[in-house]
């Protein structure tokens, strides 16, 4: 602990400016979280309609000929790992990567599609095979970014480079809670449930299914990117909130100490003066 009064004042000033920064970052995070949630909301109608359409067409077409829907013996798994590009987001990135590690602990061949710098750096450091990386998704993920990830994994799956594709990302629960989860993306499971109605398809059900499946996959990926971004901002907001609170606590303690020391110094001085005055009598 710093002892002199001046040291303590300096320390208080420094903690105060840290607090200002974390407080500002918390507010920025809250605003971006709101934006991310709005984008997620805006993406819902499209995702729901494409899911509906796929549900009906999958019931009507023979799905067996669609390579993207067909499971095969799994030799090599491709992981799409969605993390943030930046830190200062509490345990957000670490939690996702821990979940990934559990997932790959069993061994087996794996290749990685790293979305986000944190995940890529982690995987590289450990000597994993990162076949593609997508950095700079930014604060507001766009659909075409999801689509290019989608196109790459579709290509890898169809070429036989991977036999299964899993997505690792943080599901958004609340601003305080994010849930790292793993989902199988390919082979794609068509949405379950009964088709709402009978359609006619142009030119035919198989062709429509063929066209629809990749778009459904992109929509799923897009939703995951938006959700991951909301989780990231939620985690960052929570982290910055507790950092702000910690600095307040620290400042409070330091102010107390400062006052006590100052009072002690004053008491000491008075005692000396009184002592001096008494000596003169």
């Amino acid at each position: 602990m710093p002892q002199g009064l001046r040291d303590i004042r300096r320390r208080i000033r420094s903690v105060e400016s840290t607090r200002k920064i974390t407080q500002a970052m918390k507010m920025v995070a809250a605003a971006k979280l709101r934006r991310a949630q709005e984008s997620a909301e805006a993406s819902r109608p499209y995702a729901e309609r494409i899911e509906d359409a796929l549900r009906s067409v999958a019931a009507d077409a023979s799905a067996s000929r669609m390579p993207l829907l067909r499971a095969r013996p799994v030799q090599r798994i491709g992981y799409v790992v969605v993390t943030g590009d930046r830190g200062l987001s509490g345990p957000y990135n670490a939690n996702i990567l821990r979940r990934l590690q559990q997932e790959i602990a069993g061994g087996g061949e794996a290749v990685f599609f790293a979305v986000g710098r944190k995940g890529r750096d982690f995987l590289r450091r450990r000597g994993h095979n990162v076949v593609k990386e997508y950095l700079g998704i930014g604060d507001y993920p766009r659909y075409h970014q999801a689509q290019s990830v989608g196109e790459d994994i579709v290509a890898a799956f169809t070429n036989g480079e991977v036999d299964e594709v899993r997505l690792v990302y943080a599901q958004f629960v609340t601003a305080m809670t994010q849930h790292p989860s793993v989902q199988v993306m390919l082979p794609l499971k068509t949405p379950e449930g009964k088709a709402a109605r009978q359609y006619i398809y142009e030119p035919d059900a198989e062709a429509v299914l063929q066209a629809l499946v990749p778009h459904y996959l992109y929509a799923l990926l897009y939703r995951a990117l938006l959700e991951a971004k909301a989780s990231e901002w939620g985690a960052r907001m929570t982290a910055m909130d507790s950092a702000t609170r910690n600095s307040e606590e620290l400042i409070h303690g330091l102010v107390l100490l400062l006052n006590r020391l100052r009072q002690a110094a004053i008491t000491n001085e008075i005692a000396e003066i009184v002592g001096g005055a008494n000596a003169l009598q």
Binding site: A53, V57, R197, Y199, I200, Y201, E202, A207, V208, L212
Partner: peptide, 14 residues
Amino acid sequence: DLGVLARHIPLVTA
């Protein structure tokens, strides 16, 4: 080209 009026039969196409 495809025109759709009200009461069209249920249809899905690319």
